Amino acid sequence: MHQTVTTALDLLTGKYVFPDRAAAAADAVRERLAAGDYEGLDEAALGERLTGHLFDVCADRHLRVRLREAGAAGRTGQADAAAAWAEYLRLTGYRIARAERLDGNVGFLDLRGVSDPALGGRAIAAAMELVAHTDALIIDLRRNRGGAPDGVAFWCSYFFPDADTHLNDVYDRGTGRTRQYWTLGHLPGARYLDRPVYVLTSDFTFSAGEELAYNLQALGRATLIGQTTRGGAHPTDAFAITDTLEITIPTARSINPVTGTNWEGVGVKPDLEVPAEQAFTVAYRAALRHVLDTATAPLILDEATEALREHTD
């Protein structure tokens, strides 16, 4: 057990994006180790206790010690792990659970994760094509647990006119470099411009799902409705401690070019705070009111009128 904890601390101090915090956390854990706090624990219990002790110092929700999944890289190999992940994305629609046109010509996207566009780009483009001609759009991130920063940039690019919007920066400790993320100059399909976008959030929304919401909010491109998100802003890698235990360590940090900071530890705060289960209804009503104020086609006006009646208490 002593060696397991020591290995975890070596990885923490060598990889964590905040070296000072890593050193402080390591010192605190070493004191507990010397006091026997980790004796007699199986790996699952050890991981849970270490995670709590690291959080006490670092307050970082991405920093975790946990059992490795059956197909984790290192036991099956990087190539096998990448193939398994690609297959998971394929079988889950690249984390796009729903893409549809609602009555009143309101688009709706339910995103459970954020796929790398190298894998899910065609699915993202197809979803955006389905809602391209709607008069307002709702993006549901209430069950979104994260994904790829490149995927966030790909999604965001649909809501800005060109390649000139600076979305996010990510500083990487290992290289000492900061990568900038900008909107893309070319996209498959039409952009979604000059129409309102409503983003639904919950206290379950995490990581790249939070970045998508944060970017759109910071740039004034979307209205966020729901609850404050979970608060994990740091890109993370997993490192093996043993064959069956791993530590996930934030090796980089996000820096928003508008706010100069990120949502780590505080979450993304909605513009309109309501219980998560009510967020869709509130957003749909707002979208329908916009349609009734701006649409001219009788069919759309009739649909919007009826839908608003059905969703009004």
Rank of each mutant, 00 (worst) to 15 (best):
G226I: 11
F154R: 07
T134Y: 02
D203C: 01
R309Y: 09
Q227P: 03
A283L: 07
L141Y: 08
R221L: 15
G120R: 03
A127L: 09
A72H: 12
A86Y: 12
A295E: 05
R61N: 08
N262A: 13
L200A: 03
A283D: 05
A28M: 14
E273A: 15
A295P: 02
I124H: 04
H311Y: 10
R309N: 05
V170L: 14
H186Y: 08
D271Y: 09
C156N: 11
A24D: 05
L212Y: 02
F18A: 14
G231A: 04
Q278S: 14
E39Q: 13
T92M: 07
R191N: 13
T281M: 09
A26G: 03
F239T: 03
F18E: 11
G146P: 03
E211R: 06
Q3I: 05
F206H: 02
G120E: 09
I255T: 15
R145H: 14
R112A: 14
A238I: 03
L50N: 07
D60F: 06
W182I: 06
G209T: 09
P149T: 15
I124D: 03
M1R: 06
E306W: 05
F239W: 15
W263D: 08
A276C: 11
D172K: 04
Y16E: 06
A35T: 01
A70T: 14
R195Y: 08
R66P: 00
A86V: 11
A83S: 14
G40K: 05
A304G: 10
R61S: 10
T165I: 10
T178S: 13
D302W: 03
T205H: 04
E31A: 14
A126F: 04
A297D: 15
V17E: 08
P275N: 06
L216K: 01
K269Q: 12
K269A: 14
G189T: 12
A59Y: 05
A34T: 10
A25N: 05
V274E: 09
P257Y: 00
P257C: 07
M128F: 15
A123C: 08
L224D: 00
H133A: 13
P161V: 11
S202C: 09
I249D: 06
L91C: 04
R285N: 11
V17W: 08
S207H: 06
D27E: 15
T312I: 00
R112K: 09
R66K: 08
A83T: 15
G174P: 09
A238P: 00
W263C: 08
T242W: 03
I300F: 02
Y158S: 12
P188V: 12
R143Q: 09
T76N: 07
L54D: 03
